[in-house]
Write a protein that binds this DNA or RNA. Structure first.
Lengths: 187, 187
DNA sequence: GCTGACATGTAATTCGTTACATGATTAC
DNA sequence: GTAATCATGTAACGAATTACATGTCAGC
C-alpha cells in the first residue's frame, strides 16, 4: 500500500511516466522504500483502474513514447485520507536479514562475526557519505518542478536516514570492541 | 529466506514444534523479524521437504500431540553456508511505511505532522522501556535449554534494537523542535 | 555496428498476511 | 459451561522480486 501512495504522492507534485517515477524513487525515497520498475508499472495500472490517476501517451524527447500519469481529484483525496488514517497501526518494518545472521552467529563463532562486523562498519561509513550527498540532492529537483512545499517534509525524512546510519555505526563499533575484549580475532 | 534460516538456527539449539518456535520468535528475534504461526508451519514443511529437518509426532504435556522438528546434518551445513555467504548483498530492509507518510506530508501540512510526530515519540519511548525488559529475557531460556553459546550473539543483536530506538527518539525530537521553530502548532 | 540510456510491459515465483477450520486440555 | 491456552493446519490474497520480451534513439 505504501508504494501505491508513494507513487500518488509524487504524481501530485508533477505528472510523469513510470520510468520517471522509478528514477525519482531511486534518488529520493530509496533509503526507506525501494521498488522494481516492473512493480511500478503494475501498480500504476492498478492506480488507474482505481480512478486515482489518468494516463495519456506522449512523445518522448529521447526514445519511444511515454505514458504520462496524472493524479485525479479522487486520487488527491484518497492520498490525504491515507496520510491521516489513524485507525491502523503504522508499522516500521524492522525485518533485517543482517541482524538475523548476527543472531545466529554461534554457528560460525566470534572470530568470523568480528570480520563480518568490520566490513559492515565500513559499509555504514560509506552510507553516511552517500547520505550527505543525497541530502544536497533535493535542490536539484527544483529545476524540474516546484518542490518548495515538499522541501521541509523531504528534509525531515532524509534526516532520519542520517540518524539511523549513525546509530548503526555506534552499534557496530560497540560490538566490535566487545568481541575484541572477549579475545576474538578476525580470521 | 531469513525465516527459513531463523527457524533452522533455533532448531539447532533444541528440537521443538512450530508452536514453540512461534513463541521463541515473539520473545527474541521479534524486534528484527516477525512471523505468523501459519507461515511458520508452512516453512517447516518446506524445510522438511528440503531435507533440512525431520519431524516426529509426540504427546504434549498439555493439549494435543506436537510435531517436533529436529535439524539434520544437512540442515546444519546449509545454515553455516548461508551465514558465511559473502556473494550476495545482505540487505537491511528499510521499507518503512511511517517514513513514507512523513515524506508525503505536504498534503496534510506541518501542524498535522507535528501531532503525528509527538505520538510517535511517545511510542518510541515506550519501545525503549520494552527493550530494557526483553534484554533481561535472555537468561530465562537457560532453564529450558542451554543457550550459553548463543548468549553473546543474542546480546549483540539485541543491543542493535537499543541503539536504533535511541536514534528514532533523537530524530523525532529534532523534527518536532524543527517544526516548532518554523511556527507550526499541533492541532 | 554496438553500447547504453530510454521506455513499457508480462509471467512465474516467493514471501508474507488474513481468514478459516478443527479439536484437546486446563482453570475458573 | 466457557474461556484461555495448547496445537496444527489450509486457502485465498497481496506485495515484491526475478526473469523474460520488445523496441527506440543517441553517441562512439
Amino acid at each position: 500500500m505504501s508504494l501505491h501512495f508513494g507513487l500518488l504522492g509524487l504524481l501530485k507534485i508533477c505528472p510523469m511516466s513510470g520510468y520517471d517515477l522509478k528514477k525519482i524513487f531511486d534518488e529520493s525515497v530509496n533509503f526507506f522504500w525501494s521498488a522494481q520498475i516492473s512493480q511500478i508499472y503494475r501498480e500504476l495500472k492498478a492506480l488507474e483502474r482505481a480512478g486515482c490517476v489518468v494516463s495519456t501517451t506522449e512523445a518522448s524527447s529521447a526514445g519511444p513514447n511515454k505514458r504520462i500519469y496524472r493524479i485525479t481529484e479522487s486520487g488527491k483525496a484518497r492520498l490525504k485520507e491515507w496520510l491521516l488514517d489513524d485507525t491502523r497501526e503504522i508499522g516500521e518494518d524492522d525485518r533485517n536479514e543482517f541482524l538475523m545472521r548476527v543472531f545466529l552467529s554461534s554457528s560460525i563463532g566470534g572470530n568470523e562475526l568480528l570480520g563480518i562486523l568490520r566490513k559492515r562498519l565500513a559499509k555504514y561509513r560509506n552510507d553516511l557519505e552517500r547520505l550527505n550527498t543525497s541530502e544536497s540532492n533535493i535542490p536539484k529537483y527544483q529545476e524540474k518542478f516546484d518542490i518548495e512545499s515538499e522541501r521541509l517534509f523531504w528534509m525531515i525524512s532524509l534526516r532520519r536516514g542520517y540518524h539511523d546510519v549513525q546509530s548503526h555505526i555506534r552499534w557496530a563499533e560497540e560490538s566490535i570492541r566487545f568481541l575484541e575484549d572477549q579475545g576474538y580475532r578476525a580470521p
